[in-house]
Amino acid sequence: MSRKRTENGSESGPATSHVPVDRFGFLKQEHANSPERFSKSKTTSSTDHDREERKVRKWRKMIGVGGSDWKHYVRRKPNVVRRRIRKGIPDCLRGLVWQLISGSRDLLLMNPGVYEQLVIYETSASELDIIRDISRTFPSHVFFQKRHGPGQRSLYNVLKAYSVYDRDVGYVQGMGFIAGLLLLYMSEEDAFWLLVALLKGAVHAPMEGLYHAGLPLVQQYLFQLESLVKELIPKLGEHFTQEMINPSMYASQWFITVFSYSFPFPLALRIWDVFLSEGVKIVFKVGLALLKYCQDELVKLPFEKLIHALKTFPEDAMNPDTLLPLAYSIKVLFRFRKVNVLVKFP
């Protein structure tokens, strides 16, 4: 018996090859996670094109051949670099720049042959868990759609390699979306080292606590987010308290996958540009900006509608050019350096 969609009776079949995809490779019929609605409205005029070209030229100069001038430039003009990253890294240079700003390029150069060793010769207790999630990671993207295709194989290799590299973390659901996002911009080995740079904290605070037993860092971030909402958007904070909305109901995914799970792809990419350069604060800022932008609507909603709204923000709120400036304007101060989180697990 073949598995098929029952609602409309259409055969789903194996990877459909002639379905139109957007410029990022997501199938166009998919609403969630599809950036189509943003790019479609923007007709790329010749001035846009010129602007983009000038931008790329500036960036190329900043980076130098293969990244040779990057460190020098960052040391000399950190504010220029930061400002340019906040405006968005040109898509054609994104993969390279991500590796430069995350410190992963250095890790790669310091550890020749290690990735290959991890992929080929080691085994991991998480292999079955990883396999089970492979087809459930960006299922609407052409690169990952084909069963056992190059996308799925790369995703498996990176996740398996990481689960061997760090057996305390192993594999945790959600890591696949991060690895998947990276694989759309770089090779397996580069993606692996970027994952290492993030989780081990090459440049910023290590992320591995998000995935350790008890998910301690998720719990800490959720707690901090709740306090920040109360402090910065008090009306909404009070409404959340009244309606018994807990941040774990809507924001776990924000932190665990750094917005790569269900946000429109162009927005996710812009967030990632800043995330890699400035660290986790941008996740809080974007989250708070979203809540702030939508607060007039949100405060009117009762519990159930509120939860729904917190998982499906309107299109205009998700426009990077509106949301990110708002996010940058939010000052996030962590007063809670050390948070006592009750961690329970069997």
Binding site: R3, K4, R5, T6, E7, S12, D133, S135, R136, T137, F138, P139, S140, Q173, G174, G176, F177, S248, M249, S252, Q253, I256, T257, Y261, S262, E304, I307, H308, K311
Partner: peptide, 18 residues
Amino acid sequence: KNEFNLESKSTIGVEFAT
């Protein structure tokens, strides 16, 4: 919702419906 999705993503955290 009387829906079934062959291409569903793994659930991260919790989801909710009534």
